[in-house]
Structures are given as structure tokens and as C-alpha cells.
């Protein structure tokens, strides 16, 4: 139940968003995120977008490791 789904926003309408996760589309609540736009990436839990995200974990690893060394 706790596995998050990262997905791309296709459409936003009055508190809900249509998302695409690797080809599978579904309606979710966008009630806790402001200024969501088509093309944004989000993390989804239990049908709710909980965070706007970037989709690049390689760039993230670069930034985190850079700081470490």
C-alpha cells in the first residue's frame, strides 16, 4: 500500500489530475499541490499527488555525492 507511483501529469482540472504512469492513465486528486501543470512529474500515493518531483535520479545522485566528497 505504501509504494509510490511517479507519473507525468496529462491534464489538470478543478482539484483532480489525469496522470500517465508508464502508459497507464488514471484520475488522481491534486488537492494538496498548487500550480500543477501538464508535463509536471508527481509522486502519487493512494490516489493523491503528494509532491511535485523531477524525474532524474541520476542528476540527484550527482548532487548528493558531490556534496559528500
Amino acid at each position: 500500500m505504501c509504494v509510490g507511483l511517479s507519473a507525468k501529469v496529462v491534464r489538470v482540472e478543478a482539484g483532480t489530475a489525469l496522470i500517465d504512469a508508464s502508459g497507464a492513465q488514471r484520475e488522481i486528486s491534486a488537492g494538496t499541490l498548487e500550480n500543477l501543470e501538464p508535463g509536471d512529474f508527481v509522486m502519487v500515493h493512494a490516489g493523491v499527488a503528494i509532491a511535485k518531483i523531477t524525474d532524474d535520479d541520476a542528476a540527484e545522485a550527482d548532487a548528493v555525492m558531490e556534496e559528500l566528497l
Partner: peptide
């Protein structure tokens, strides 16, 4: 303490969700 997941986690979290 380090945030190693910055592409998703912000220091302030999701303020609207906390309020809710």
C-alpha cells in the same frame, strides 16, 4: 542528517497536506 532524496523531498514538506 542529510536529505538524499531532494528530487522529491523538500525541507518544508507539503504544507497544504500538513494543513489538511
Amino acid at each position: 542528517f542529510r536529505n538524499c532524496y531532494p528530487r522529491v523531498v523538500r525541507d518544508e514538506g507539503n504544507i497544504a497536506a500538513i494543513r489538511l
